Simulated assay, not measured.
Amino acid sequence: MKRLSVFLLFNVLPFALYGQSIELSGRVSGATDVENIHVINKTQQLFTITDKNGRFNILAKLNDTLAFSSIQHQPKEVVVSGNIIKEKVMFVFLEEQINKLDEVVVGKVLTGNLMSDIENIDGNRPINFFDVGIPGYTGKPATQSERRLAQAGEFKPIMLLGLLGGSMPLDPLINTISGRTKMLKNRVELEEREALMQRVKSRLAKDFFLSNPLDDDLKMDFFYFCADDEHFIKYCKNKTDFEILIFLRKKYRQYKENLSTNKK
């Protein structure tokens, strides 16, 4: 009986564990930045991202397929082996993604030295506001709707004090009463949602749908469904990929439930 117990402990039990999911600790290395690399368990539809040191943790079992991808690296898939399950660790090296173009020489050859190349280029440099000694705006250019909203102004109660001096601005008051300011605010928010949704889609759609399958004709509709959420900007603007993916996964479950309800 004792021999049988030892046999089961060292021979049968490990194979039984191989069929269960365990948490793997991994590290990605490469020639370029290894932070925010997408790690997707395609078999179990799980995902995570690496930290600044390339480390990650993810649930997996024997023969699961883990996919690694980022803009800077070539995609790579790793099948979880028995040795990985036994050690509960894995190391992955990603090769740099290099987009090679045919060499074409047009005009003068640039050396890479900015000041030297500027001197070698024919033509006059365009004059900017620094050249004439006036202040200028160097931030993000405003959209047409943002410019119109700024021109419309926003009425504030403190502006009523201007009546005492006879200099109260009328445009903000008129635009507030007529509803134009509110309409312009809504338009600016819609444009911000659309732009943010397109950025999220272009950056995360490919990896997200690897672990959350959806018909091609529904993928664009899904992202509009996400953008319609009142908390979309809060959860997706200036957030990490991991935080955005959590939000998308929550909306994905809601979207699938809606599809099932509509089919009934």
Rank of each mutant, 00 (worst) to 15 (best):
R253C: 06
F247R: 03
I233G: 03
Y252K: 06
K234S: 10
K239F: 07
I246W: 06
D241H: 05
F232K: 01
D229Q: 09
Y255L: 05
D241A: 09
E243I: 00
F242Q: 14
K237P: 00
L245G: 09
E257W: 07
D229I: 01
E230V: 12
T240P: 02
L245Y: 09
T261F: 10
E230P: 04
H231C: 02
N262T: 11
Y235R: 11
I233P: 01
K237C: 04
E230Y: 08
R253F: 10
I233L: 10
N238Q: 11
R253I: 13
Q254G: 12
K251F: 00
F232G: 02
K256V: 08
K264H: 09
R253L: 13
I246S: 08
F247K: 04
E230D: 14
C236I: 02
K234A: 10
K251M: 09
L248S: 04
T240E: 08
C236K: 04
F247W: 04
D241P: 00
T240R: 14
T261D: 11
D241K: 04
K234I: 11
K237G: 05
L259W: 05
K263I: 13
N258D: 13
F247G: 03
K239Y: 05
K264D: 13
K256Y: 00
Y255R: 03
Y235L: 15
F247V: 03
K251D: 02
F242R: 11
E230Q: 11
E257S: 13
F232I: 03
F247H: 01
I244F: 05
K263A: 15
L248M: 07
T240G: 04
N262H: 11
F232W: 00
N238S: 11
L259G: 07
Y235E: 15
K256C: 08
I233H: 03
K250P: 00
C236G: 00
E243Y: 04
E230C: 00
R253G: 09
K256H: 01
K234C: 03
I244T: 04
T240Q: 07
N258P: 00
K239T: 07
R253E: 14
C236M: 03
R249F: 05
N262E: 13
R249N: 15
C236S: 02
K251G: 02
K250V: 10
S260K: 15
I244C: 02
L259K: 08
E243H: 07
K239R: 15
T261W: 10
Y252T: 03
Y252L: 06
D241I: 02
R249V: 07
Y235D: 15
T240L: 08
N262G: 14
C236L: 04
L259D: 01
F232P: 02
H231W: 06
F242I: 08
F242D: 13
N238V: 08
L248P: 03
Q254R: 10
K256T: 06
F232V: 01
Y252P: 05
Y235I: 05
